[in-house]
């Protein structure tokens, strides 16, 4: 059993896949920031932002619904925004009688709730497309370019590398637990406390395996000259087309923002 399915990268030979990771990371953040800065109920702005992310999705060759579908994962959190339906002052839109109580949904509240849900769904699509079109090592390179501290990037890289190794081990542990609890089914001794304890043991053994592996990795690094300093290859230069893509992308999100603010 292999945990390779964890990797969200989808190899394609698309326009988006060929864009420099630095450009993609910056533009994804700019897109999300623009979306966040759009005022509530700025419908024209939301339409433009959606068109933009749909266009990017098409340029990714992952299929237009790839990100749209996956972004619905954000729905459970939308519960946290439900109260704005009732607390935003405005014209009543719907009365929900609840016995002696009645909840009043205002039109403004509905607009605000829909805005939050939409913004969240749109922002998530940007993250999904970024992760699906960019191998993680390239994202690490982009982070180095954006001056994320080297030690932190080094820890990110090691974490990503060993995530698959330890996830494999976690899957094996879970399978072993299932095999044993099937044998114990008749005993009926599986209280919540017992399940929690078993899970804790498994987490502890993952930690121990990780600890011991980190010692062996450290030896392997030492053997090849590691001296505690984090050193890497220099950043590759950015192609002119990628610089142009960065400027065009920033101009597009900037003009959506400006347009919405002027018109709205």
């Amino acid at each position: 059993m292999h945990a390779n399915f964890i990797d969200p990268f989808h190899a394609r030979d698309s326009l988006l896949h060929h864009v420099d990771p630095r450009v993609k990371l910056v533009l994804a953040v700019a897109f999300i920031l623009t979306t966040a800065l759009l005022p509530p109920a700025a419908w024209p702005g939301y339409i433009l932002v959606f068109a933009l992310i749909l266009a990017v999705a098409i340029a990714s060759a992952l299929g237009p619904f790839f990100a749209i579908k996956r972004a619905f994962l954000v729905l459970p959190f939308v519960l946290a925004a439900l109260p704005v339906l009732f607390t935003t002052p405005g014209e009543p839109w719907l009365h929900v009688p609840l016995g002696r109580w009645a909840l009043t949904i205002t039109a403004a509240g509905l607009a605000r709730f829909a805005s939050i849900a939409l913004k969240s769904w749109l922002s998530m699509q940007a993250g999904i497309l970024l992760a699906a079109s960019t191998p993680f090592p390239q994202l690490l390179m982009a982070m180095r370019a954006l001056r994320v501290p080297r030690l932190l990037v080094g820890v990110f890289g090691l974490m990503w590398r060993y995530l698959f190794v330890l996830a494999d081990e976690a899957l094996r542990l879970m399978r072993a637990r299932e095999a044993r609890s099937a044998a114990l089914a008749g005993a009926g001794g599986s209280s919540v406390l017992w399940r929690a304890k078993v899970t804790g043991y498994m987490a502890g053994s993952l930690f121990l395996r990780g600890y011991e592996r980190s010692e062996r990795i450290y030896d392997a690094m030492l053997a090849r000259g590691y001296d505690g300093e984090v050193r890497t290859l220099p950043l590759p230069p950015m192609a002119r087309s990628d610089k142009a893509a960065l400027l065009v992308g920033l101009a597009i999100v900037g003009s959506i923002l400006a347009l919405e603010i002027w018109v709205g």
């Binding site: 030690l151 080094g154 820890v155 990110f156 890289g157 090691l158 974490m159 990503w160 590398r161 060993y162 995530l163 190794v165 330890l166 996830a167 081990e169 976690a170 899957l171 542990l173 879970m174 919540v192 399940r195 929690a196 078993v198 899970t199 498994m202 987490a203 993952l206 930690f207 395996r209 990780g210 600890y211 592996r213 980190s214 010692e215 990795i217 450290y218 690094m221 590691y226 001296d227 505690g228 984090v230």
Partner: peptide, 30 residues
């Protein structure tokens, strides 16, 4: 962390982050 000057720290932190991530895959029904 840097000031504590333990070179062992980087692989340790990276692998333990992976262990926590993998540990989050283990859940138990309440």
């Amino acid at each position: 962390v840097n000031r504590e000057l333990d070179e062992r720290k980087m692989p340790l932190m990276g692998v333990l982050a992976a262990a926590i991530f993998a540990g989050q895959m283990l859940n138990f029904a309440v």
